[in-house]
Design a protein around this nucleic acid. Sequence first.
DNA 1: TATTGTTATACTCTATAACTATA
DNA 2: TATAGTTATAGAGTATAACAATA
Lengths: 169, 169
Amino acid sequence: MSPERPRTNTSVDPVGDRLVALADDAVLGSTGYLLLKAGIHVGNEIEQAMRELGLSMRDLLVLSFVACLEGLSQQELSDRLALDPTLVVGLVDGLEERDLVRRAKDPDDRRRNMLVLTPAGERVRTDAIEAATAVQEEYLAPLTNEQRTVLRSMLFDVMAPRLPWLRPA
Amino acid sequence: MSPERPRTNTSVDPVGDRLVALADDAVLGSTGYLLLKAGIHVGNEIEQAMRELGLSMRDLLVLSFVACLEGLSQQELSDRLALDPTLVVGLVDGLEERDLVRRAKDPDDRRRNMLVLTPAGERVRTDAIEAATAVQEEYLAPLTNEQRTVLRSMLFDVMAPRLPWLRPA
DNA sequence: TATTGTTATACTCTATAACTATA
DNA sequence: TATAGTTATAGAGTATAACAATA
C-alpha cells in the first residue's frame, strides 16, 4: 500500500493494523470521543473564521442570542452561554465599544441591562453567519445533504434533554 | 400542550415560538453548534465519571494510547493528544506516581521514553473503559443501536481527513 | 434581604524559554 | 546541529469575593 514504507520482519501490515487497533479501541474509537474531537475541531474552525472578521466565536453567540431573544439580560445571557456573568461583562463591553450591541436599562427593573443589536451589529451578524455557515458546509462536505439532516436530527435528539439554553425565556 | 402554562393575550404560543426561533437560528440551531455543545457535554460527563475513579479524561486518553501503541514516546503521545509536550510530562508523572504507567528508556535512542502500562494500569484502564462506556450508553440513550452506528459512521467520515492522531505510527 | 451588574483579585490552565542528555 | 524530555516562568483564561445600584 505504502510504497515508501519498507517491509518489516512481521507478516502483518503494521500500518493498517495499528490504524484498525486505534479506531477499534473502546475509548479512542468511541462515538463519544469522536463527538468530542469533532466539536473541538469545528469550534476551532469557526473561531478562526470569526477572527478574520475581528470577532470571537463567543461574540457570534452573543450576537445570535441577542438577535433571537428580545430584551435579553446579561444574567440570562450568561445562563444561555453557560458562561460566568463576569465574563459576559467583558464580552458585552467589547461589542458595545464596537457599536454592535447596546445596553439599555430595563424600565421595569432598572438593575437589568436589556441587550439589543445596533444596525451595525445586524450587519456584522449577517456576515458572521455567512462565514460560520461556510465553515460548516466545508466541514460536513463528506456527508450528503440527506446525511447532514439525519446528523442534525440525531444531535437534536441526543441533546434535547440538555438544551436549557435553547429553551424560551 | 403544556397544561400548567397559562394562556397569554397573544394568539401564538410564545413558548413554542421562541424555542423554534432559537433552534431555527442559523448559528444556534446549526449542526456545527450542536456538535460543539454535544462534544463539550459528553466530555464533561466523561470527565466526571473519571474523577470518581481518581482519574482525568486525559489520564484515560493516555492509558488508551499507551495500551494501543507499543513503544509510544512522549513526543508522539503529545501529537496524538494534541497537547503540548510539557503538559505530557505532568500527565505521565501523575500516572507513574500511581504506578499505572512506566517510563522505559528506548535502547535504540536513549533520549526517548517508551511508555508502557503496568498491570495496575491495565486494571484501572479496564475500569475506566467500563465507566466511560456507561456514560456514553446513557448519553446516546435517545438513539437506537442502529442510529448510533450511523452516527459513529458519519462522525468517522467527517473526521477522517482530520484524524492524524488515530493514524499509525 | 435578594438580585443585577461590575470591579479587583486569585486561581487554574497552558504555552514559552531555557536547560540537560542524547543523537 | 538537532531532538526528547524536563523545569521554571510568564501569559491567558476563568472563577471568586466584594461592591454599588436597584428591587
